[in-house]
Design a protein around this nucleic acid. Structure first.
Length: 427
RNA sequence: GGAGUAGUACUCAAGAGGCUGAAGAGGCGCCCCUGCUAAGGGUGUAGACCGGGCAACUGGUGCGAGGGUUCAAAUCCCUCCUGCUCCGCCA
């Protein structure tokens, strides 16, 4: 969501931005917005004048009553009744127009950063940089689910019976590896100066609609029956929601948080769910980073944040690369975004393990998150990035540390979280 | 889940139908006093959101949220949300 003033004052920028995102079908909406906006402001002026009249007349009634001039007061009362009658229609139209306007504004994409590569869809995303040698060993790496099953670490069959497709039991050392990675990710971010948080795993609908589009909500969120509650799809939802309608002191910025939560996703419309592994599932766990900062600092933080994820995976000896989202693939709320992808020696390609985004002031505008500074209040920038989403991150570790004999070497950094264990092997 | 109680600006807080955009205080600005250590006195000022105006300024909305009563609501009524206290239940 952008500032409507931007459309009033710099329509070209907004139009060009839409074109850059290959959303030409939205171009007529810009003119519709301009027209709606003008009509609304006119109407508001008329309404405001009437309301002013009502207020002043009501005040007069007050003083007339005090002076016991009842007749005169009653005359004025009649005037106010008439004003109110006129206002009924005007206010109704005001509401309708502003609803319509808001709806249309929601569709206008955030102004993307100049540095975002122009491209139609995800096939035109741009590899930025590789970190580490993508090694392909001279033996075959089995499918991660097979590796885990062979080590008695995964049971999807039982999970299918209890919960259906998209769920899993992790067991033994694999389950332990799973928690070890999350604990390590947590400590990794604490060492970077982030504040560790455990947020609510369910949120109300007004928070949901504040942080995501309607379509996303339909496709992702699980609703609790008979309650106004949804299971979070990522802790970003509750972490950003935490600041809804808040004014924070400028001196508190930047706010750097790292939150843990399970994540629940319906994954409606994604084909990948049929996969038998752990790559796309209804339930996973995630260590996230969320930063709220001054707008001018957001690009610095953006770069710092994705590089933390790179550093995290490199500390586990997983080769990674960063892939920048091109304009057409960038979600409407985002200013700039990139994925961190881990090397899969089995598929001999990179696969997504995290996603870093700066939303500029888009979320802040929708949710009313402001900072109080010397020169008044302003909307702050919000950013989020994955430290580790697991089981997906675990797949990367497993594949890259798989040994010919079927065992998995545990990266040094994780060993303290595994009771000093160096290897996962079949008993 | 039951019963009571509260929710006012950045914070604390007064207000109990019109004279309240809302006293007072902290805060913030300036001045003075005092050689010390989160000291005192004076004085001024702002306050959120949306419009109009080059501007000084000006109009509207706004007292947890949403409805209602009334010519007029922070103030009365209804519903909901949140905090606190007590009771019940349970990891």
């Amino acid at each position: 969501m952008i500032d409507i003033k931007l459309i009033r004052e710099n329509k070209k920028l907004v139009v060009d931005n839409i074109k850059k995102k290959f959303q030409d079908e939205k171009l007529p909406i810009v003119d519709e917005i301009i027209e709606l906006d003008e009509r609304l402001r006119e109407l508001k002026q008329t309404g405001d004048n009437l309301r002013q009249e009502r207020n002043s007349t009501s005040n007069e009634i007050g003083s007339l009553m005090r002076d016991k001039k009842i007749d005169e007061a009653n005359k004025r009362k009649q005037q106010v009744v008439e004003i109110n009658n006129k206002l009924v229609d005007i206010e109704k139209e005001e509401n309708e127009l502003s609803e319509k306007l808001k709806e249309k504004m929601m569709v206008i994409p955030q102004i993307i950063d100049d540095s975002v590569p122009i491209g139609k869809d995800d096939t035109e995303n741009v590899e930025i940089e590789r970190f580490g040698e993508p090694i392909v060993p001279d033996y075959e790496i089995p499918y991660h689910a097979d590796i885990c099953e062979a080590l008695n670490g995964l049971d999807k069959e039982s999970a299918g019976r209890t919960s259906g497709n998209g769920f899993y039991y992790l067991m033994g050392d694999i389950a332990r590896l799973h928690s070890a990675m999350l604990s390590y990710a947590r400590d990794f971010m604490i060492d970077k100066g982030f504040t560790y948080c455990v947020p609510p795993f369910m949120i109300r609908s007004d928070v949901v609609t504040g942080v995501m589009s309607f379509k996303e909500m339909e496709n992702m969120m699980y609703k609790i029956e008979n309650e106004d509650l949804y299971l979070i799809g990522t802790s970003e939802h509750s972490m950003i929601g935490k600041f809804k309608g808040q004014i924070v002191n400028e001196s508190e910025l930047p706010i750097t948080l790292t939150s843990y939560s399970p994540c629940f996703r319906k994954e409606v419309g994604s084909h990948g769910l049929e996969e038998r592994g752990l790559y796309r599932v209804h339930q996973f766990e995630k260590q996230e980073m969320v930063v709220l900062c001054k707008p001018e600092d957001s690009m610095d933080w953006y770069n710092k944040m994705w590089s933390y994820t790179v550093e995290f995976f490199r500390s586990l000896d997983v080769p990674v690369r960063t892939l920048e989202c091109c304009s057409g693939d960038l979600a409407d709320l985002k200013v700039k975004s990139c994925d961190v992808e881990a090397w899969s020696p089995r598929q001999q390609k990179y696969f997504e393990v995290g996603s870093c985004s700066t939303l500029g002031d888009a979320q802040a505008r929708r949710l009313g998150i402001r900072a109080k500074g010397e020169n008044g209040n302003y909307l702050i920038a919000t950013l989020n990035n994955t430290v580790l989403a697991t089981p997906r991150g675990m797949i990367a570790v497993i594949e890259n540390n798989y040994q010919k004999d079927g065992s998995i070497l545990i990266p040094k950094a994780l060993q303290p979280y595994m009771g000093g264990k160096e290897k996962i092997e079949k008993k």
